[in-house]
Design a protein around this nucleic acid. Structure first.
Lengths: 413, 413
DNA sequence: CCTAGTTAATCTAAGGCGAAAATTAACTGC
DNA sequence: GCAGTTAATTTTCGCCTTAGATTAACTAGG
């Protein structure tokens, strides 16, 4: 409610308009100057000036012309993809993947390194990420100086103290908690920045995936959406006005640990009755084991879920019953999301979610509509996630690009 | 992700600074010009100019001096409370309350009219609100021309189509749904604007109450909070960055209809197992009736809840057991709120919530901490609502004031 | 009483910015 | 080859903020 911290002097006005123009170029693709003027509401003269600055700084470039419609043909302007590069890192449960992108987030090169067994100390992870990023960078032929920064998606929660957390101003940074590997308040971004020699922004992997969907996937052009991710764990990224909802300390959206059954099954988080305990991959497999009376060994969860999906496809009673229950739990939990967040769209993703989606989507939607209030339920649509389960690195890279855009293309460089 | 629609030309810069200064004056109370400069980051010269404008327009006024600390004494500037008046209306389940406030939202006069029985057509309600507002206005001695507008809080849901819904730009308007009285898509704001002869903004009563708490109650200075309201119905207002979270169509925050028990008790919304069915006043009384084996007549819910509270106070077994269960349901549902929204603070309100709070707060918090994830649960604090159950009209009035502030004090008038 | 010191507020350039209007550029179509 | 049209740039102009100087209003100490 206090005064907004942006835009005071006339110089900031210029910067704000530069940001508007740059955003339009980035998300609107190649555009003529006059079209930019129409879309941003700025005058053609201002757009000319701002675009000239952007081109002089190397951020934008002219790219072809539009056919004339009876007058001077429009010259298209776009962001120069080769101006700078961006790194995205996906720290998964079993491997680290580093990806180098151009400025428009086309992938240039990828490197994946297994985590291996044993203790995962921050130091070992940092070294591993460093190796992966270096490999990818060399493969892409990108010098370190060309890289704006690296976004990193991690499986743990990334806590940020509310103060300097805001989105666009870029001071996003926090502590990583990952109880499964014994991490507590690890300042990963600092360690990685030193190792990589570039700016680093760290966020939760589910949230970066949500960002990727919002920018390039099923969420394009949608202001309010929820990306529901079902894998080993269960999570959600709530996107509001194009930004991931973070709450006071970036712990919002922990959908997997909302309670669906009071005094229900124990969850690895320590509580009972969490959604994750029922519809996370281990939860589904455990219920299938009980229902089918067979105690199989699922050391490989992914194969387990695929077998389960196949069993459902064959119409095996036990598997179908387990799937029905899964849809009911998911439907109730999804209805809660709708009642609380009122999104326009729900995107289903996560590796298990994608495997099971053909059998899961329909019944889940039905159950959802039974539990969500009418106006919101009527409005919402469901969609399969558009980018596949590998979008964590891409989403992490968007963190860097967003900061780049919010700075107006780092005019100070 | 598109370009922001505000601030283009140098003239808008002035308006933006005017808004900043006005906001500082409104929320920061009487302030010297130099202090305003420090807090807004503007130069002293600009503040002098802007404040001169505000005083010339009658929005602000000088109000006393600060003792000198060795130099020229600082002259305090504040918003002139008498510059304009604001109306707030609380359309309740049994009565309509109209309240006239000065610009700083001190109450000047109140008028309450019972709804009476029988059919509540939009026309009858509009006429009733008109009478109440006129009464309050006359009692306060306020001419219609002095009133900026009227904010109205209604018990139903107020649907807004995402498009022109944004907060600060003021075009907030929507359709009222109130199934209990047979209303569907009623454009109440238009009808009321015609009846009252002033601008009208309508919103859900729980949401306006949340606004009141955020501005003047337990949520002052807190960026992320949830106001949980327990009365006949159960609802929540989620406040993020000082603004009520609305989602795509203003249907967010329907906490009362999140499912806490799968295949649970039927709710008046048509679904089953809703939180409201358990911890709304009728739900509590129904459970008490079953537990105590006595089927009493609770035509007056409020008396019923008071009797129930007394029974708990006396330690009656059945009542205590029902209260324990209530706390468990509430705790689970509150933990879900925390996991999804990660607020700094949870404010408990609503008439039933306030009556039961002495017995309810402790156990609910305990149960909440059992179910919420550690980082968020550690951060959150609980508080009893600070304004009492009558804050709906006040919160509705803040809708109008917010628009006034966002316009920079309507300089075009 | 008077003067130096201090803080508040205002006044006075000076420079930057964007909008509107005029101008130039680059086409099409007859 | 000339009118018509659309795109982009240049020119002119008014507005805004800031920095710095100035004025205002006080305190404190001799």
């Amino acid at each position: 409610m206090g005064p907004s911290p942006t835009r005071r002097t006339a110089r900031d006005l210029r910067r704000a308009n530069r940001i508007d123009v740059l955003r339009q170029l980035y998300f609107g693709g190649p555009t003529s100057r006059l079209e930019i003027a129409r879309r941003t509401g700025l005058s053609a003269a201002t757009v000319t000036n701002v675009v000239a600055d952007l081109i002089a700084d190397g951020v934008a470039q002219e790219a072809g012309q539009l056919m004339s419609e009876g007058g001077r043909p429009a010259v298209l302007v776009r962001v120069d993809p080769a101006h700078r590069a961006v790194v995205g890192v996906d720290v998964g449960e079993t491997a680290v993947k580093a990806e180098v992108f151009d400025l428009t987030l086309n992938a240039l090169a990828t490197a994946e390194l297994p985590l291996g067994g044993g203790d995962l100390s921050p130091g070992r992870l940092v070294a591993l990420v460093g190796r992966a990023v270096r490999q990818a960078r060399e493969q892409a032929g990108v010098e370190i100086g060309e890289v704006i920064g690296a976004g990193v998606g991690v499986p743990g929660t990334v806590e940020m103290d509310g103060a300097g957390m805001g989105g666009a101003d870029g001071r996003r940074d926090g502590f990583v908690h990952a109880p499964s590997v014994g991490w507590e308040r690890v300042r990963l971004s600092g360690l990685l920045a030193a190792e990589l020699g570039m700016d680093v922004l760290v966020d939760n992997g589910a949230k970066t995936m949500g960002r990727a969907e919002a920018w390039f996937g099923a969420g394009r052009g949608v202001r309010h959406l929820v990306v529901a991710l079902i894998g080993t764990g269960v999570g959600a990224a709530v996107v509001t006005d194009g930004e991931v909802y973070r709450g006071a300390g970036n712990a919002a959206g922990e959908w997997g640990h909302t309670t669906v059954v009071i005094d229900g099954a124990p969850c690895r988080c320590g509580a009972t009755g969490c959604l994750e305990a029922y519809v996370g991959a281990p939860g589904i497999l455990a219920r299938w084991a009980i229902a089918s009376g067979r105690d199989r060994d699922w050391s490989d969860e992914r194969r387990g879920i695929e077998e389960f999906a196949a069993a459902v496809g064959r119409g095996e009673h036990a598997a179908v019953a387990v799937m029905d229950d899964t849809a009911r739990y998911l439907g109730v939990a999804t209805a809660n999301l709708i009642n609380l967040f009122d999104p326009e769209k729900i995107v289903i993703g996560g590796w298990a979610g994608l495997v099971l989606e053909p059998y899961l989507m329909g019944p889940t939607i039905e159950e959802t509509r039974r539990h969500a209030l009418a106006p919101a339920a009527r409005r919402v649509s469901f969609e399969r996630c558009g980018l596949g389960p590998d979008a964590v690195a891409l989403g992490a890279a968007t963190l860097i690009v967003e900061r780049f855009l919010a700075s107006g293309g780092a005019p100070s460089n």
